[in-house]
Structure formats: structure tokens, C-alpha cells
């Protein structure tokens, strides 16, 4: 599943990368969705038509059923008569915070483990990589569910649980890249010239890892968003009344045959956000890695 990038590009002007990225239609589409979701999340307090937790009297029919999309409620209402659009906007905050924080932490842990193992070799490297192997043998979702159920799930706990489960892939990719880099001639030349280990690490190894980390960081957000949604759907993620796209589906799924919009609007949102990060990550891989160019 892991496609390793052979990205050995040193310095790339960010402006050039952005221009080349936006020239790709799919990446542009992805960026547009990300901008839209970020905008919705940031502006939620101002643009949400109703408070997300308010159970509106006019939000239910006389029989107590939720209202379908249209009229006063653009996306309809949920089982408790709350405005779905408002909950979706606030839910975007949850998805993005967890997506960025959990993925950021996972990326940091993964990079630390991968670089240390690849650069130090010896017993430290061996121990770290055996531990990574061990983590790979854990059924990730089962572990996440267990952890989330053990600690009472809150926004930050869920983010940490996801990070603890997700760093392994990054560690392996970074490890492979670091070992390959350490064997290159210019590193050997630096060593002969008497450069210190820290100079080699910070001046030569880490900068070369940046493209890989950007690509994996972007693709990883998509994995994180999906995992958060899944945990929340199973009821061990972010807890209601705090809205998250996953727990909106969790709360309403018993009624989904009669009110399918309560499942499919948040479902489509999760899919689009994950898709956006996948498209941008994939385009970044092509843009940042010259060996990949012309392969598509």
C-alpha cells in the first residue's frame, strides 16, 4: 500500500511548487475543497444560521420527525430538531483540528523514530525498528477503539489515540529514506571533511526529507480524517453534543432509512475532505519529485 517517494530534491522554491500544483486540475479541485472547509470551520460562529446545539421547536414536524433539506433549513434538521448545516460547520472544526493535530503529532513521532533508527543504526536503530514492526502487527482500528474506550474520549484524546496508531507508516518511510541518504557520497564526503553528526543530520539529512514529509503529511491528513470519522461513527470518537461529521452519522443512523440526508450529507463531506487531501498529496508527490514526472 505504501508507495515510497524517491524524492531527493533539495531546495524547491515554495512559489514554484504552488504554481505547478495549481496547474493540475485535480489538485486545484482539492485545494478548493480544503479552502471551503477551512473557511466554513473558521467562520462557523458567524455564518452558521443557528446555534449548533439548539433544539429548535420549528426544526421538527408536528409528528416529531426531522425536516428534509430545503426551506429554512438548507441541509434539513436532525432527530433532535437541530439545524444540520450549523452542526456541519462546527463539525468541520472538529474534523480539521483532529486531522491536523493528530497527523502533526504522528508525523513528528514517525520522523523522530525513522531518522533516529536510520541515522544511529546500532542497537538503538534495531530496537526502534523492531518496535515499529511490533506496532505494524497491531490491528490499528481495534487498537484505536480500545484506547479510545479506555480513556474517556474527548477531542484531544481522540487526536492522541489516532496519532499513536498512525505514526508507524511515516517512521518506516523516513527510515528507508534516511538509510538511503546516509549511504550517499556527499554524506561520506562531509564525514571525511570532519563534519559533526549533528551538522550532517540537520544540514543534510533533514532538508532532504522535507519533500517526503510534505507528501506524507498531506496524505496522512486524509487517513486521519477517515479514522476520526470511523471512531466517532462507532461511538468512541468525539462525544456528542460536540458535533463531528462522524458522530452526526452515529447519532442519526437508526433513522437513516427515513431521513437519509442525516447520513449522506456528513458522509459526503467526510469523503470530499479525505479526497481533497489525497488529490493534493498525490499532486505534491509528482511536483516535488522530478523522477515521477512524466509518469502520469
Amino acid at each position: 500500500m505504501a508507495e515510497t517517494t524517491g524524492a531527493h530534491v533539495a531546495a524547491i522554491a515554495p512559489a514554484g511548487v504552488l504554481r505547478r500544483l495549481l496547474r493540475r486540475k485535480l489538485a486545484l479541485f482539492g485545494c478548493a475543497i480544503i479552502v471551503l472547509v477551512v473557511g466554513g470551520a473558521v467562520l462557523a460562529p458567524w455564518i452558521a444560521p443557528y446555534p449548533p446545539d439548539e433544539q429548535l421547536f420549528e426544526g421538527l414536524t408536528l409528528l416529531g420527525e426531522p425536516l428534509p433539506p430545503g426551506g429554512d433549513f438548507l441541509m434539513g434538521t436532525d432527530l433532535l430538531g437541530r439545524d444540520l448545516l450549523s452542526r456541519m460547520l462546527y463539525g468541520a472544526q472538529t474534523s480539521l483540528i483532529i486531522g491536523v493535530v493528530a497527523n502533526g503529532v504522528a508525523l513528528v513521532i514517525g520522523t523522530l523514530v525513522g531518522v533516529l533508527a536510520g541515522f544511529m543504526r546500532g542497537w538503538i536503530g534495531a530496537v526502534l525498528m523492531r518496535f515499529t514492526d511490533l506496532m505494524m502487527a497491531f490491528p490499528a482500528l481495534l487498537l484505536a477503539i480500545c484506547l479510545a474506550a479506555i480513556f474517556q474520549p474527548s477531542l484531544w484524546i481522540v487526536a492522541m489515540v489516532i496519532a499513536l496508531v498512525n505514526w508507524v507508516q511515516t517512521a518506516r518511510v523516513v527510515y528507508t529514506e534516511t538509510t538511503a541518504l546516509s549511504e550517499r557520497e556527499f554524506i561520506a564526503a562531509e564525514k571525511t571533511l570532519g563534519a559533526s553528526r549533528s551538522r550532517i543530520l540537520f544540514r543534510h539529512i533533514l532538508p532532504h526529507l522535507v519533500p517526503t514529509l510534505i507528501v506524507w503529511g498531506t496524505l496522512g491528513i486524509s487517513v486521519t480524517v477517515l479514522l476520526e470519522a470511523t471512531l466517532s461513527y462507532l461511538g468512541v470518537g468525539v462525544q456528542p453534543p460536540t458535533p463531528s461529521w462522524g458522530n452526526i452519522i452515529f447519532e442519526n443512523q437508526t433513522y437513516f432509512q427515513a431521513a437519509p440526508w442525516l447520513v449522506f450529507i456528513p458522509g459526503a463531506a467526510i469523503l470530499l475532505l479525505a479526497l481533497a487531501f489525497n488529490l493534493v498529496g498525490d499532486a505534491l508527490r509528482d511536483v516535488l519529485d522530478p523522477t515521477q514526472r512524466g509518469n502520469d
Binding site: A229, T230, Y233, G246, I249, G267, I270, L271, A274
Partner: peptide
């Protein structure tokens, strides 16, 4: 799209 679709949404 397939790899970005949450499994429970696909199922439902």
C-alpha cells in the same frame, strides 16, 4: 474516490 470513502458511509 474509492480510497477516500469511509467504509461505513459506503456500507450505508
Amino acid at each position: 474516490v474509492a480510497v477516500s470513502a469511509p467504509q461505513f458511509v459506503v456500507g450505508l
